[in-house]
Amino acid sequence: MTRIWLAAAALTAAAMPLQAETVAPTDVAYTDGAVEMSLTGMAGDPASGREIMNKGAGNCIACHQVTDLPEYAFQGNVGPSLDGAADRWSEADLRGIVSNAKEMFPDTVMPSFYRTTGFTRPGNAYTGKAAEGDLDPLLTAQQVEDVVAYLLTLTE
């Protein structure tokens, strides 16, 4: 049994090269809160990023207003409006803010979307039960890139 499982693991590893450029959440390099390098080496898709602003683990508009997203009701105001974000921040800044906003704004209430360690009583999603095994980041590397690509469209 063990051996078959190991063989399967080896196979998966062999199939990895395509994703080899994905930077793991624990390996992201921050400089003054910013992240220069793309997390995936692939361009982000702003249309996908636009949807992540509203749904699932992104849900950015729980806290932020974005005039460009009138179709999404009930935008929160715990954080600042993101209108004109691309005028205020570089791509690298935005990648850093979305990946781990605590690097740019220590103590911020904004969650770290591409971080997997250092939490107190992490749960298994929204079940209230303890997390099992390693945590997945709130957004995948590509989703972070997609959101950054969308934020870069927010000019005034």
């Binding site: 849900n59 508009i61 729980a62 806290c63 009701a73 009930f74 935008q75 929160g76 105001n77 715990v78 209430v109 969650p111 770290s112 939490f119 107190t120 009583r121 992490p122 749960g123 997390a131 945590l135 709130l138």
Partner: peptide, 28 residues
């Protein structure tokens, strides 16, 4: 005041720092 969970939010983050604000459809 402890920031629990993967979202790292304490009671105070929502109910002391942000009461009066909207978090999505909820008036804190």
């Amino acid at each position: 005041y402890t920031r629990y969970g993967q979202l790292e939010l304490s009671c105070a983050n929502c109910h002391e720092d942000n009461y009066g604000n909207m978090i999505r459809a909820d008036h804190l």
